[in-house]
């Protein structure tokens, strides 16, 4: 696999927090239209990985290449967003004082998001249709005029997913989307992610092994800032080191 065929390519990435390496010489590649699940125990560096890709954290070393040859190092968050990388945060991150519609409208990908464009800009019919379609996808048609802050936790998660979809990113970064969701909501979210994967590349971080089994094609296991195993769900589950780290921890947590 060459870097040119990939949507995101990380090589030798190290993130250093005062001597503690949240990512340690990490190599990580995702292909176009791939749905990749990243798992790993708490503190493994999963969120930090997304921070690096989306520009929130600057690595101490390494390369981060988007698409063919776009170097993301040194770019600001909103520039990376406009390039086509969307991010859904672990805790729902939405605009509580705006309506559901306004949340989606602000997120919609537009040629310019500068101050002069937004002062003059009005939504076109095509844009409104696109927002309507997304509302249907995330099932929030009824809540369209509601203050986003008044939505339930699950609805907020979905709204944020909708906001990211409307950015029309080539690469979606999704951090623990089903945390705090009911079983039914979890399953719906799984289907949603799978249908999105037909058009976009997605990186999903997840803890819930059942959910992972539902959506995963290839799973990457992160531990102490490095990849320790990568492959199908079956391969990963059969891996001794993974069992030791991951299942061992779970046992501790349960026991």
């Amino acid at each position: 696999m060459t870097e040119h065929g990939s949507i995101i390519y990380l090589e030798g990435v190290t993130v250093d927090y005062d001597g503690f390496k949240a990512l340690n010489n990490l190599n990580f590649i995702v292909n176009h239209r791939e749905l990749r699940v990243v798992i790993g125990p708490n503190g493994a560096g999963k969120t930090t990985l997304l921070d690096v890709i989306s520009g929130k954290t600057k690595p101490a070393a390494g390369r981060v290449i988007f698409g063919k040859d776009r170097d993301l190092m040194g770019m600001r968050e909103y520039e990376i967003t406009q390039l086509g990388i969307g991010r859904k945060f672990q805790a729902p991150s939405i605009y509580g004082n705006l309506s559901v519609w306004e949340n989606l409208d602000l997120s919609l990908s537009r040629p310019s998001k500068g101050i002069f464009a937004t002062l003059r800009g009005i939504s076109t019919a095509a844009e409104r249709e696109e927002i309507d379609r997304t509302l249907e996808t995330i099932g929030l048609q009824e809540q369209v005029r509601k203050r986003a802050g008044s939505l339930s936790h699950g609805q907020k998660q979905w709204l944020e997913i909708g906001m990211v979809i409307l950015q029309d990113p080539e690469l979606l970064l999704v951090d623990e989307p089903v945390a705090g969701m009911t079983d039914e909501e979890t399953e719906q979210t799984g289907r949603l992610l799978q249908s999105l994967a037909e058009k976009h590349a997605i990186i999903v971080i997840e803890h819930d092994m059942e959910f992972v089994r539902q959506i995963a094609r290839i799973v990457t296991v992160l531990h102490e800032g490095t990849v320790i195993c990568e492959g199908t769900v079956e391969k990963v589950q059969a891996d001794d080191r993974v069992r030791e780290i991951y299942l061992g921890r779970q046992k501790v947590a349960h026991g």
Partner: peptide
């Protein structure tokens, strides 16, 4: 205008504004 909503959005969650593609 939409810019007005960006202002409110900044008050609500400046980080989200960055990741919605605005500076």
């Amino acid at each position: 205008s939409r810019a007005g909503r960006v202002l409110i959005a900044i008050r609500d969650s400046e980080q989200r504004v960055l990741f919605s593609g605005y500076s």
